[in-house]
Amino acid sequence: MSDAASASVRDLSGAANMIECEGVSKWYGDFQALNSVSATIKEQEVVVVLGPSGSGKSTWIRCINKLEHHQEGRIVVDGVELTNDLRNIEKIRSEVGMVFQQFNLFPHLTVIDNITLAPIWVRKKPRSEAESMARSLLDRVGIPEQADKYPGQLSGGQQQRVAIARALAMEPRIMLFDEPTSALDPEMIKEVLDVMKELARSGMTMIVVTHEMGFAREVADRIIFMEDGMIVEVGTPEHFFTNPTEDRTKLFLSQIL
């Protein structure tokens, strides 16, 4: 727990605001998926978003890189407000890395091509530079030997680590994780979480939607609990797991712990 303690005690009060959300609302037809969500995430902060399924967690982080469009409120990422302007969206997307539940690797490209494609064509890097960076990233996520295989030849855990390397290759300032371990077999969850812990320690700003309570307790600076499209409770892991104030949080924790 010493790691957790040190992480929770991290003083981020002086850090700049990385993401600011103010009254973000979104509807699917008549159904309100997000109800006036407001939150500020600081640089280098690791935020874990918890909540029952259908509570709007994924929808919210998908709004942050415009995979979903919010209808009310404002979202500011690294000083740039999200509008419908195309250039704006492309700029923000290349600063915000995203890891999906279903990995979404490109099945027709080898692992190395999956990682280098966007740096070469979006970041306009020379191929050689992009490739050497991709290899060092594969080293970092622990699978340097899989560079020339196709995604279909890898296990789920390896695929998810490739997906993390692919997002990191864009040198993002923020990483969004949308239930990164939910589609994995239990024995592969640890290898992915270890990579994410290492990333958190390196100072990456991260928002993680997950059901992994151990990860939340150990790595998060803050935990946001959502239900019915609203933020119900925000606090440190310490506060959240030992002394939650809201009844709904208590109910959620009693069901899963």
């Binding site: 890189n65 415009k66 995979l67 492309e90 700029k91 997307r93 290349s94 915000v96 890395g97 995203m98 999906f100 279903q102 979404n104 690797l105 490109f106 494609l117 966007a118 064509w121 979006v122 997906a163 692919r166 997002a167 864009m170």
Partner: peptide, 20 residues
Amino acid sequence: GQYEAAEALGMTTAQKTVFI
């Protein structure tokens, strides 16, 4: 998911179409 992954990497519509 293929479209979303390409979009999340900042690819333009043309790049997404041609490469993915």
